[in-house]
Design a protein around this nucleic acid. Structure first.
Length: 234
DNA sequence: GCGACAG
DNA sequence: ATCTTGTCGC
């Protein structure tokens, strides 16, 4: 599929933040139309550990797995190996894996109806997490499902699957804390681009019929790990 | 100023 | 993210 060219690559955290501030206005989040995705793409990245002290140049594998939204059967897979493009800095996480993920998306023959990212969308210090960034670059609806809290405050949702509550930051609701499995830690859902929070949570639940994490990220996680394992140890 | 901080 | 043993439970 087609993906917009990457902007000039930032050399410093300041430049990276400036890029996020410049791209944020491109988000389409006002009254988004229903997505009702037929296919959903899950994205994830695995790392080989070493690299430089700042984490740059660490070997990684970025995977995209497209599933049929109804049956959750695999429609297409794409994996690429590469190196971390930026040190890990909370709030600038996207710059670490963006180049590899974009390349994996470009190698897709299918154009998914929705992107499900491992991390955050709007629930971000500058309201521009990885899901927002990929949404703008691809033009596709996107959302983020994170395993751990980042920004915002929340009350623990009920113990049953489906229970949820608002994730609030700076006086605004930036996402939702959702229990995808009874008695198990909840996940953090936030919209990225062209989708509403209600639909994002419905999709998140539909993609997680059995486990805490959605099948999209579970599949992408396994694929990226396998790709890394297939590389010569070094 | 100090601590916390997606993956 | 990754480093990691055993253990409880379906």
């Amino acid at each position: 599929m087609e993906v917009r060219d990457l902007h000039p690559w930032p050399g410093t955290p300041e430049e990276a933040r400036a890029i996020q501030d410049r791209l944020r206005p491109l988000l389409d989040l006002d009254d988004p139309a229903p997505v009702s995705p037929r296919t959903v793409a899950g994205l994830d990245v695995s790392y080989a550990g070493d690299g430089r002290d700042d984490g740059t140049a660490a070997r990684l594998a970025a995977a995209v797995v497209v599933l049929d939204a109804g049956s959750l059967e695999v429609v297409e897979e794409s994996v690429v190996t590469g190196t971390a493009a930026f040190p890990y800095v909370p709030g600038l996480f996207a710059f670490r894996e963006l180049p590899a993920l974009v390349e994996a998306l470009r190698r897709l023959n299918t154009v998914p109806d929705l992107l499900v990212c491992d991390g955050y969308g709007l629930a971000h210090p500058r309201r521009f997490g990885l899901a927002c960034h990929l949404g703008v670059l691809t033009g596709l609806p996107s959302l983020g499902i994170a395993k751990r809290p980042f920004v915002g405050a929340y009350d623990p949702p009920g113990e049953e699957r489906g229970s949820a509550g608002p994730l609030r930051d700076g006086g605004e609701v930036v996402g939702r804390v959702l229990r995808t499995r009874q008695g198990v830690k909840p996940v953090f859902v936030s919209v990225g681009h062209r989708i509403g929070l209600d639909e994002a949570c419905r999709v998140a639940l539909a993609l997680s019929p059995e486990f805490r994490l959605p099948e999209t990220t579970r599949r992408a996680d396994r694929l990226s790990r396998d790709a890394l394992a297939g590389l010569l140890p070094s």
